[in-house]
Amino acid sequence: MKRVLPAPWLSLALWLFWLLLNHSLDLGQALFGGVLAVLAPLLLAPLRPRPVRLSSPGVALKLLLCVGVDVFVSNAQVAWRVLNARRRPPRSRFVQVPLDLRNANGLAALAAITTVIPGSVWSELALDHSVLLLHVFDLDDEGAFIAHFKARYEKPLMEIFR
């Protein structure tokens, strides 16, 4: 069964969305949607991430709380810098952060974290996953930023996704 339907819930959802998008319960639409619902997960199976195993749920909860605080604090800092840009313009820069994290799920989580925190944008990941290029809105000390980023986000993610 897993060979024909590797993701049965995804197939069901695709079939239902196909019918909803076409506003039709015709036999032809139902059959075509069913074929798409079966073929899409089969063809896209190599793109699906590996199963996630959290080895440290406590660290994951701590990281989640840390990110929540960082989102709040970064919003305030970015707003303050924007409001005071005439007195002191922000010093935006691209920063190359060397990475020790290689787990695909961990890298995806790091991308999500970087994206939700104002003031930083995930720009590029090296093909060998060894360096992350970030754009930082306002940066005083590149070395301190890299050390903070690695300790605050990468280290816990490496512990979570062993």
Rank of each mutant, 00 (worst) to 15 (best):
F72W: 13
N22V: 02
D138L: 04
G119V: 01
F72I: 14
L12N: 04
A79R: 05
S123Y: 13
R102V: 11
S55Q: 15
M1V: 10
N105L: 05
K150F: 07
D100W: 09
Q29S: 15
V82P: 08
A108D: 02
A45R: 07
V67F: 09
P89A: 12
G58D: 05
L63Y: 07
A151P: 05
L54T: 13
A111C: 07
W80I: 02
P51V: 11
V116W: 00
A111F: 09
L65C: 14
R53W: 11
R86K: 15
L134R: 04
H148I: 00
T114E: 04
E159L: 11
S120E: 10
G33Q: 02
Q77R: 13
A151V: 00
S120Y: 00
L19I: 02
K150G: 05
G119F: 05
A144Q: 13
L44H: 00
D70E: 08
K2I: 01
H23S: 11
A147Q: 05
L42P: 02
E124W: 06
R88F: 08
N105P: 10
V4I: 14
R3G: 06
S56Q: 15
G28V: 15
V131K: 03
L157S: 12
A147K: 01
S74C: 09
N105G: 13
Q77C: 07
K2Q: 07
F94Y: 14
N22I: 02
A13I: 09
A112R: 08
A144M: 04
L47A: 08
P57T: 01
A40W: 00
D100V: 10
W18Y: 14
